[in-house]
Amino acid sequence: MSVAAVTARGTRRLSLSWLRLFAVPAAVGIGIAASFGVFQTLAPGPADSGVLNSTFLESRFVGHLALSFISFGIVALVGVPLGVLIAIGARPFRVLVFLLANLGQAVPGIGILVLLYAWLGLGAEPTIIGLVIFGLLPVLRNTVAGINGVDPAVIESARGMGMTRLQALLSVEIPLASALIFAGLRTTLVLVIGTATLGNFIGGGGLGDVIASGINRSDRIVLVGAVMVAALALLADWALSLVERAVVPKRISA
């Protein structure tokens, strides 16, 4: 095969992957444009000017970002190492942690928030704690599944060649589990961004405030709030997928 042919094929594959790379932002842009069309058809309400101004929207958007990303950061920093520990560690520990994480997921998000309100009062902190509890399970479950799913022969050969337990974990098991770990992280990120709207109920701020202030009063406000949350969730997931592409070894990605 000539060099030119190889290059041509390479270029085509590259342009295809670039296309796929920007498919999500493009779709989000189209979605926002379409929503704007819908927005025009809805009747304006008396509350609109108080909510649909850049100062209020920006403050709630930034608040939503903070709630979501702080919660997600905590989930990632706690969930992945905890998942690794459970995967390689003792059974009783594992049963207990999964019991709690399953409980966190099974109880409705609003229920957790109300309980935390009863305990900690209003504000962003109880909201973040609630989101962390709610988002922990997918990360834990996928990390454990990823580490336990590594071919035992690969681990045996790593240890048989003289890698320490930690070396085998860091250079073999975690890289091989990374595709599944990322799948869990992405699930949780979307879950947390969506659920963060419930922060409105206990004074957590965020885009939930926008949606709630439109309910029964203005469809325009509800639409704007909902579209912003949806766009944020899609774009954040997309951004994390870029990190995944850079971090997960090729040919391992599921």
């Binding site: 045996e156 060649m161 003289g162 040919r251």
Partner: peptide, 16 residues
């Protein structure tokens, strides 16, 4: 172990 070569049936090459 690093001073002894080790080969197993499943080979266990690192796929990544």
């Amino acid at each position: 172990r690093r001073s002894i070569g080790y080969v197993i049936q499943a080979i266990g090459l690192f796929p990544h």
